[in-house]
Computed example of a mutant assay.
Amino acid sequence: MTAVEQDLSTHPGYLLLVDDDRPFLIRLARAMESRGFTVFSADSVADALAAVKNEPPRYAVVDMRLGDGNGLDVVETIRNANPDARTIMLTGYGNITTAVTAVKLGAVDYLAKPADADDIFSALMNENASRVEPPENPMSADRVRWEHIQRIYELCDRNVSETARRLNMHRRTLQRILAKRAPK
């Protein structure tokens, strides 16, 4: 094995991360760099499309909903630029229709948020198209609901009334949920 072949076998390659949640994007970028990827991060559709045009990625992790558009546009552009790219779609708003659309546009997997770096890495590196093993300790349904409420609350700049409106729940019910500790 030549030095170049050895470097390619131990170096996964160029990874494009696209998410408008900056803290999550930074944490995921660090985690993927520690796994050997060369990471480029983008927090908008426009930045991601420019990055794909500049250098089509070998791997990509793309959020579904971005501030300036839809991550599906990025997935399709990546597939057109590099048909062999392995793209993972992330979303906090998962449903069957968008999952099917993402796969048709070129995504190899579709993960619901919150997904951790290990799940994302496994999905990216799973070349044989079999499903990733389920987590040993998955979050409970109550915890997933709580995480979703917290995310919407943060996106609404901690405005209880606006969060309650978007979640279609009574404001006082939301206040009670926010006052409690996170479920396990």
Rank of each mutant, 00 (worst) to 15 (best):
A99Q: 02
E136M: 08
V18P: 06
A46T: 03
N80E: 14
V45G: 02
N70A: 10
M139I: 14
R143V: 10
D21S: 10
V4I: 09
V62C: 06
P57D: 02
V39L: 08
A85C: 14
A102H: 02
A99G: 09
D47N: 05
E162C: 03
N70P: 04
N54P: 00
D47T: 06
M1T: 07
P56G: 10
D73F: 05
L174K: 03
S130E: 12
T163F: 03
Q175M: 05
L90Y: 07
A129H: 08
N70F: 05
R172H: 09
K104Q: 15
A85P: 12
K180G: 15
D47L: 04
V61H: 04
S130M: 09
L178D: 14
V4C: 03
S140W: 06
L16N: 12
L66C: 10
S9A: 11
R35G: 13
L167V: 04
F24G: 13
A102T: 07
A179W: 00
S122L: 12
A51S: 08
A48V: 08
D63G: 11
T173G: 09
T163G: 11
A164K: 01
M125C: 10
F121M: 10
S34H: 07
M32W: 03
Y14P: 14
P23V: 02
R181C: 10
D68A: 03
S161W: 00
K180E: 15
G94T: 09
K113W: 13
M64T: 11
R79P: 12
L28M: 12
S130F: 05
S9T: 04
A112G: 07
K180S: 15
N159D: 15
D157E: 14
L17R: 01
N82V: 04
V132N: 14
A60V: 05
S130I: 10
D142K: 02
A112P: 01
R158V: 09
R22Q: 13
N159W: 01
V61I: 05
H170T: 00
R143C: 12
D157W: 01
G36P: 07
S34M: 05
A29C: 08
P57M: 00
V144I: 15
C156F: 04
R151P: 13
E133D: 14
R145C: 13
A3Q: 06
T2Q: 08
L178A: 13
S34Q: 08
F40C: 12
I149Q: 15
E33R: 04
S41R: 00
E162I: 01
V103D: 06
N80L: 09
L90C: 07
V160D: 14
L66S: 12
D73Y: 01
G106V: 05
T10W: 09
R22T: 11
D119L: 14
L16Q: 11
V103G: 07
Y59F: 15
L25R: 04
T91H: 00
P135M: 00
V132G: 14
D21F: 02
R27T: 05
